[in-house]
């Protein structure tokens, strides 16, 4: 049996991570968590999670960024919002999960064998290109990128959909895609401006002061 040390040192934390998450609109209530476990108790997927939703809240709050972003939990969240409506502290847990998914994708540290982040990215790309989503094409792309064998196993479902007229052979797209393009560019630019602003904040000045 392999023994592992589970102690955490201060260096294992990414200080400020919890505060960063908390500063995102919708995630503000995180700090008031009392670790009651209602979220895990109502979550239909918690039985498959490596950390329960409650545990994730504690990890985020204590700045254990790597543990959280590597966890299966955030990808198992199906966004049913049950935890959010039952939380006695009105913490919007689903929105926090979204925020963590975004960070995991940005930093590229999600579990490799998980297809969900790939689906999310392909979904995003498809909307970027066409403005709409054609589900069967999206699913096929996702399987080809992750697990082509799985795609083969899905033949029965695909054929069934085709026979029932639920498998469009033409991609759905919008007419004025340039409009979307311009709107997204505005968002991107604002994100970059925001980053510049953040760099001016005293937090970084303090870090620089140590040097």
């Amino acid at each position: 049996m392999k023994l592992t040390r589970t102690i955490k040192y201060e260096a294992d934390r990414v200080k400020g991570f919890g505060d960063e998450v908390r500063s995102v609109p919708g995630c503000e209530q995180l700090q008031s968590c009392i670790q009651c476990g209602t979220c895990s108790g109502v979550c239909p997927l918690s039985i498959y999670m490596d950390y329960s939703p409650r545990h994730v809240m504690a990890l985020v709050r204590s700045d254990f960024k790597n543990e959280v972003l590597k966890s299966h939990t955030i990808w198992l969240c199906a966004s049913c919002y049950h935890c959010t409506v039952e939380c006695p502290r009105q913490i919007r847990i689903t929105d926090i999960m979204y925020e963590l998914k975004q960070r995991a994708i940005q930093e590229g540290i999600y579990p490799r064998h998980f297809t969900i982040p790939v689906l999310a990215k392909e979904f995003y790309k498809m909307v970027y290109r066409y403005g709409r989503v054609t589900e069967n094409v999206l699913a096929a792309t996702m399987f080809l990128k992750t697990n082509p064998m799985e795609a083969v196993k899905m033949w029965r479902l695909g054929l069934g959909l085709l026979l029932r007229g639920r498998f469009p052979l033409v991609l759905e797209k919008i007419k004025r895609r340039d409009e979307l393009d311009r709107m997204m560019k505005v968002v991107d630019k604002m994100h970059i401006d925001q980053l510049h602003d953040d760099q001016k904040k005293p937090r970084h000045a303090v870090a620089g002061g140590h040097a």
Partner: peptide
């Protein structure tokens, strides 16, 4: 919707 929100909620 859902999958998109996991990439960029503001977008």
């Amino acid at each position: 919707a859902t999958a998109y929100m996991a990439v960029d909620e503001v977008k």
